[in-house]
Design a protein around this nucleic acid. Structure first.
Lengths: 145, 145
DNA sequence: CTGAATGCAAACAATTTGCATTCAT
DNA sequence: ATGAATGCAAATTGTTTGCATTCAG
């Protein structure tokens, strides 16, 4: 659980510009503490700062991603999800039936990462790992049919 | 390498309707032999059958997916990719820098699948596996900076 | 013949862009 | 003061939908 203040400090340290919009957006992200979409951020911010435009949200998300504060994840929902880089390593199991996203920790995936690195020279990004499939509940429901 | 004829036969067997559009779309998919996007299909078909509409392409892709002939993959490119279910199990390594997609075979991932199934009851879809990261070339280029 | 599939045009949703204005440094 | 960031409106891109017409079975 990182406060947005720490992140603002980090922006400042890197010589990046700090604007009220950026602070508000970081706040929305740290509040949610997980992955969040652009329009979710917009929805949270809008009541408090009605003048902030959705395009600013997108631009800021790009900016924060480029500067290493955020990761983008694409979970096949049709909209990009953003999360703090600082979150502990974990992965996403996306149920293709109920669309539920289960977070699991990074350990399980370590052997696979090693294998990919050795055999393909591919450095799997430990934070962009999305695994699609069927969760237990949906699998059981499907068997019952 | 599956001919589109086999697939048309399969449609027929399942009592699904066969139209010239559907045949053309299947043909485009088997020709490409890999993953393909809706507009790629459209681009291939259009010169030959100019009357085929992009909406028909999308509807057909949905239809073929629902009926188990195709898989949808979302590789974070902003557009959905489709591929034949009949392709041997494999996965996609997506380079977040050069956007290259590397296909690897299914073996490597087997241990992880087993672990997910046992520990989380999650049946990872062996065909929808997308792994994001940095390919060798881009990693080396980045180190050099 | 009958319902399913198509073409067309129009609607949508997510995201991006051009440009004049405002603001952080 | 100067270039970067913003708001606004409009454009783009990928995808979906309503509806009258056509076609496969």
């Amino acid at each position: 659980m990182k406060s947005h203040q720490e992140l603002v400090d980090r922006l400042r340290q890197n010589g990046l510009r700090i604007t009220p919009q950026r602070v508000a957006i970081l706040e929305a992200i740290t509040d949610k503490d997980g992955h969040i979409t652009a329009d979710e951020i917009f929805a949270r911010i809008n009541p408090l700062f009605p003048y902030v435009d959705i395009s600013t949200v997108y631009r800021t998300l790009d900016y924060l991603t480029e500067n290493g504060l955020l990761n983008v994840i694409n979970l096949g929902t049709g909209r990009a999800e953003y999360e703090l880089v600082s979150r502990p390593p974990h992965h996403h199991l996306v149920c293709r039936h109920c669309k539920q996203v289960i977070s699991i920790d990074g350990e399980l995936v370590q052997p696979l990462r090693d294998a990919l690195l050795h055999q393909y020279g591919f450095a799997a990004d430990i934070r962009h790992f999305a695994i699609f499939g069927l969760c237990r509940a949906c699998r059981e429901a499907e068997d019952r049919e």
